[in-house]
Design a protein around this nucleic acid. Structure first.
Length: 354
DNA sequence: AAAAGAATCAACCGCTCGGAA
DNA sequence: CTTCCGAGCGGTTGATTCTTT
């Protein structure tokens, strides 16, 4: 039993292309009253449209911050990279392209980029599968899905560290994870039932390894460089709690890290829970030079907006600058916020000061 | 110039998710 | 805990525009 549609076809509701007059009515209404409350909006605004249609028209066309014009080469490159990382998650991709809508990017991908990529000899992207599984990797057919085990994995932590970037001969940068651990989590891990040996953690890791690449919602390059998996394994219950597992990346392109750590729409998907801090004596020395933030014991507090800027501008050479920038840009770091050292000793969390 | 086919993209549809009751 | 509802997402459709013959 499905839900009744928000607007039936024979209820006198306008459908199809919007007229200039309808656009004007909707724009004026939203300018005055703000958006939201889409179901009630058409009646209040005097539009013979369903709320869903109004929402779509506003978000995809009438919004003042919509960027008009062709997709630039830079934007195109970004779309391609993000699609490789995220698959057909158009809203997430659009969130990283200011002024562009998910619909626009989806259309652009389906009409332009697929052809371009095919012509350029790139591996044909799979646009039908939102999990972005590739042909080189095993993937269950729909009718065989009952033979597979799906393990939901909610991304809980992404360790971003650029502290040990090394420049390769071709000019690209790699993170040396042997010195700077990076974690990346996947949304879903799918393994054929028959392939799982739950007897030891090591066996689980071995069973899962061949499937990492297809299951990961992140770049194949990153996942192919997995060198270690830690599973929260409970042999007694003969089960794996992968939601508490993390995957350590050996070498990650810094561009991938940039994309994954970009704050725009990822706040919900990728939450940095911990990151490395400088040794305490360096922190103290650093803080003693400034007046716009203070340190007490093993924490320091940003006193004002200037302090935030000072904090990350002045500390720029230090290797945790990127985390600070992340928090600032994503709005997580605000006046009065406090960095506090917590367990484990080498990590820190951000929390608001009471 | 006209018809046919291809390409584009705005809009629709069905589904899921999360919050409120 | 269940149900309902609004919002949002991704896949698909179809009208319009462009290109080719």
């Amino acid at each position: 039993m499905g839900r009744a549609p928000c607007c039936s076809k024979d209820s006198g509701i306008n459908r199809g292309a919007w007229t200039a007059e309808e656009d004007m009515i909707l724009s004026e209404y939203i300018t005055i009253h703000g958006d939201g409350g889409w179901r009630a909006l058409p009646k209040k605004a005097g539009l013979k449209r369903c709320g869903k249609s109004c929402r779509l028209r506003w978000l995809n066309y009438l919004r003042p911050d919509i960027k008009r014009g062709n997709i630039s080469a830079d934007e195109e490159e970004l779309i391609i990279r993000l699609h490789r990382l995220l698959g057909n998650r158009w809203s997430l991709i659009a969130g990283r392209l200011p002024g562009r809508t998910d619909n626009e990017i989806k259309n652009y991908w389906n009409t332009q980029l697929i052809k371009k990529l095919k012509n350029s000899g790139s591996s044909a992207p799979n646009t039908k599968n939102i999990n972005n599984r590739t042909s080189q990797s095993p993937s269950p057919r729909e009718e065989d899905r009952h033979l597979w085990t799906t393990v939901p994995v909610r991304t809980t932590a992404l360790r971003i560290a650029k502290s040990h970037v090394k420049l390769q001969s071709d000019g690209t940068e790699l993170i040396d994870a042997s010195r700077s651990r990076s974690q990346i989590c996947v949304d879903e891990l799918m393994i054929p039932n028959s392939d799982i040996d739950l007897s030891t953690t090591n066996n689980i890791a071995q069973s899962a390894s061949p499937y990492m690449e297809i299951n990961a919602q992140c770049s194949p390059i990153s996942m192919s460089n997995l060198f270690d998996q830690e599973f929260a394994h409970s042999p007694a219950k003969n089960e794996v709690n992968i939601s508490k597992s993390c995957f350590h990346l050996n070498e990650v392109s810094s561009l991938d890290i940039d994309l994954l750590s970009s704050p725009l729409n990822f706040a919900e998907d990728l939450v940095i829970q911990e990151f490395e801090v400088r040794p305490k004596n360096e922190m103290e020395e650093m803080c003693s030079l400034h007046t716009n933030y203070t340190q007490q014991n093993e924490s320091f507090t940003v006193c004002n907006e200037k302090g935030i800027d000072e904090l990350y501008n002045d500390i720029c050479p230090l290797d945790w600058i990127n985390e600070l920038q992340y928090f600032k840009r994503s709005g997580l770091l605000e006046e009065g916020d406090c960095f506090e050292r917590s367990n484990p000793p080498n990590s820190t969390v951000v929390k608001s000061v009471e």
